[in-house]
């Protein structure tokens, strides 16, 4: 499926279930998301974490609703909130776990016409991720050598990170320019990402089915 449309579908579904309270639909969506995730041979450990970690916020929301809610059908709404968290997690992960970030960015550039400077600029920065993780560790270690513990609320930690970013962004932008990247220039693409009629069917039909489930059939 076209990456842009896939993310659009996931976001639209998540948005719609945020404003509706049909827990059966939430469960169905979560199950469908889980099937997609398993279909793509996601490691079992990852699936296990996806099942376990949301238990914390889901339980917290449900318990809070049971104890602090002021309506008459708190129990129903608690179930809705609990299942809604799982629907978010599995629908959302069904999109992210099956799409590498590079594919999504390329699709956004070609199909959604995001300016190429944003697409490639973001991609360039994103690929520095391992360096960034180690830079944060270095900054904190350097602080500790001088007996300075840098917490996440210490301005110095962010200050040093931003100074490093200033340096890297300059270098990276220069490197990209010297490789022939011109901001507004038209580009050709090695891999052309297309949108076929099938992609549109795959986004419209699920959305229509969702409307039927939410509004036409009286479900709890």
């Amino acid at each position: 499926m076209n990456p842009t449309l896939k993310f659009l579908l996931a976001v639209l579904i998540a948005l719609e279930i945020s404003f509706t309270s049909v827990w059966v639909i939430n469960v169905v969506l979560a199950a469908l998301g889980l099937i997609v995730i398993l279909w793509h041979r996601t490691p079992w450990k990852r699936v296990g974490l996806l099942l376990l970690v949301p238990l914390i916020p889901a339980t917290a929301l449900a318990v809070a609703m049971l104890m602090q809610g002021r309506g008459n059908n708190n129990v129903h709404f608690a179930i809705v909130l609990f299942t809604r968290i799982y629907a978010y997690v599995f629908v959302g992960s069904a999109a992210t776990l099956t799409t590498p970030i590079q594919t999504l960015v390329m699709s956004l550039e070609q199909n959604a016409h995001v300016p190429s400077k944003f697409a490639y600029g973001f991609l360039g920065a994103f690929n520095l991720m391992p360096k960034i993780v180690s830079e944060v560790a270095t900054i904190r270690a350097a602080g500790q050598m001088r007996g300075q513990v840098l917490h996440f609320w210490s301005p110095q930690l962010y200050f040093k990170a931003i100074i490093a970013s200033l340096n890297w962004s300059e270098n990276l932008a220069e490197a990209m320019t010297s490789h022939g990247f011109v901001e507004e220039a038209p580009r050709t693409h090695l891999t052309v990402i297309t949108t076929s009629w099938w992609d549109w069917v795959l986004i419209i039909v699920p959305l229509l089915l969702l409307q039927v489930g939410l509004f036409a059939i009286p479900l709890p």
């Binding site: 400077k117 920065a125 960034i132 944060v136 996440f152 962010y158 990170a161 932008a173 901001e183």
Partner: peptide, 23 residues
């Protein structure tokens, strides 16, 4: 917005993301 600003902004966002990820 120029390429350098976009990269800088993305880097700052990622740095914040990594710092928050720790917590």
């Amino acid at each position: 917005w120029h390429l350098r600003d976009i990269i800088l902004l993305a880097l700052i966002a990622i740095f914040c993301g990594v710092i928050f990820w720790v917590i």
